[in-house]
Amino acid sequence: MKAIFDQRQEQHDPKHFMANGALLANPEQPARISALLSGAQAAGCDIAAPADHGMGPIAAIHSPEYLVFLQTIHTRWSRIAGASEEVIPNIHPDRRTASYPRSAAGQAGFHQADTSCPISAGTWEAAYWSAQTAITGADLMRGGARSAYALCRPPGHHAFADLAGGFCFLNNSAIAAERLRAHGLRPAILDIDVHHGNGTQGIFYERGDVLTVSIHADPVRFYPFFWGHASERGEGAGRGANLNLPLVRGTGDDAYLETLETAFAHIRAFGTDVLIVALGLDAYENDPLKGLAITTGGFGRIGAAIGGLGLPTLLVQEGGYLAPELGDNLASFLKGFEAE
């Protein structure tokens, strides 16, 4: 399997993270890259650099206003006397139909959903090349590849069209899906991250041309809290093209695989001809963000089940945080997928 990665993704090195009011080390660290690369190499992947496809594919998903914000906000923020080293919002609008502020602090609140997506000098460069990695993977699918692994970091599935959140800035899976759709394919996104892909859902919620399916820990007591419930089915043209399959905290391998079968039925019924897997490895039983209880061997079984669909599949890296087994979990998934 071809794996795509660009070293410039290391330039995003966030420091700020808050959980339950306490300041902690940010778990979305550049060191994740080394672990994931080792896992990809252990699975026999051929590592290649992405091509630069420019802003067009990114702007097909994200608004120009938001993209200007991401590119300029750190420089503007740095001019504020006494400002923190990273852009961290301290105010949010009570509604996103409110007026658009001119100040850096106001725009940070408008475009950043929470405090877990701090923006530093290297964030835009890293996010840009993370997106180009996914775009390059999508083009491999267009070219007839059976599969590819896009090592995207920072991740993307919590990013809306004009809103960062949950460690995410550009929605790599959505960008890849739109790239494929624009070239006449019928993509589905299967999100297996432990957290609901709320940004992905939001981007396609009123559209019926991309199927979005997410299997995740029940958000009633788990991030992102306000999205990811089974009742959310899409609206307008998107009614029935969004499927959420929330799981009880601590769900293990067997119950997860049973839920996958429900996801597969919808993917087949949609007439999917190319699959994007938002590949979170944070469903692992010992992941620092603890939500589900998938074992290392379980990831191999999940990979094999997805591979058994027989669809051209782009694997886009999402979560999975620093545990000794992170690389092993990726290798297990990739080997399972390739065995089918």
Results as ranks from 00 to 15, higher is better:
Pro219Lys: 11
Ile91Val: 06
Ile294Ser: 00
Pro246Phe: 10
Leu257Val: 09
Gly82Met: 02
Arg76Ala: 06
Ala161Asn: 06
Gly280Asn: 04
Ile302His: 00
Ile88Arg: 06
Ala127Pro: 01
Ala304Gln: 01
Gly308Ile: 09
Ser147His: 13
Glu258Cys: 10
Ala126Met: 03
Ala339Met: 03
Ala40Glu: 06
Gly297Ile: 12
Gly82Cys: 13
Ser173Met: 11
Ala237Tyr: 14
Ala113Ser: 09
Thr251Tyr: 09
Thr133His: 10
Ile58Val: 14
Ala269Pro: 09
Arg142Val: 05
Ile189His: 02
Leu37Asp: 08
Gly307Val: 04
Ala19Lys: 14
Phe222Trp: 12
Val248Pro: 09
Ser38Thr: 07
Ile47Cys: 12
Ile203Gln: 05
His216Ile: 02
Glu206Phe: 00
Ile91Met: 13
Glu318Lys: 10
Thr123Phe: 00
Ala98Cys: 12
Gln71Leu: 14
Ala230Leu: 15
Thr262Ala: 10
Ile80Arg: 05
Thr115Ile: 09
Thr72Asn: 12
Gly208Ile: 12
Arg179Ser: 13
Val87Ile: 05
Leu37Pro: 09
Ser173Gln: 10
Ala176Gly: 03
Gly199Trp: 02
Tyr128Ser: 02
Ile203Ser: 04
Gly208Met: 11
His16Glu: 03
Asp114Pro: 09
Tyr321Asn: 04
Ala113Asn: 05
Leu309Gly: 00
Arg207Leu: 01
Gly122Ala: 13
Pro118Gly: 02
Asn244Glu: 08
Tyr128Glu: 08
Glu10Asp: 08
Pro224Lys: 12
Gly252Phe: 03
Phe270Leu: 15
Ala176Phe: 02
Ala31Ile: 08
Leu163Met: 14
Leu245Ile: 11
Glu85Pro: 02
Lys335Gln: 04
Ile306Pro: 00
Cys168Leu: 06
Glu258Met: 10
Asp253Met: 07
Glu232Ile: 02
Leu23Phe: 06
Lys290Met: 07
Phe222Leu: 13
Ala48Gly: 06
Ala35Met: 13
Arg268His: 09
Ser63Phe: 11
Gly165Ile: 02
Gly166Trp: 09
Glu340Phe: 07
Trp129Gly: 07
Ala148Gly: 03
Asn329Tyr: 11
Ile175Lys: 00
Ile33Phe: 07
Leu247Ala: 07
Ala176Arg: 03
Gly310Cys: 07
Arg239Phe: 12
Gly165Ala: 10
Arg153Tyr: 03
Lys2Arg: 14
Val220Arg: 15
Ser332Pro: 13
Glu65Cys: 13
Ala304Glu: 04
Leu322Trp: 04
Ala81Leu: 08
Arg233Lys: 15
Phe264Ile: 08
Gly143Phe: 11
Leu326Trp: 01
Arg153Gln: 12
Leu190Pro: 00
Ala241Lys: 14
Ala241Tyr: 13
Arg153Asp: 03
Gly300Ala: 03
His266Glu: 11
Asp139Val: 05
Gln11Gly: 07
Ala237Val: 01
Pro57Lys: 07
His16Ser: 06
Ala237Leu: 14
Thr296Glu: 05
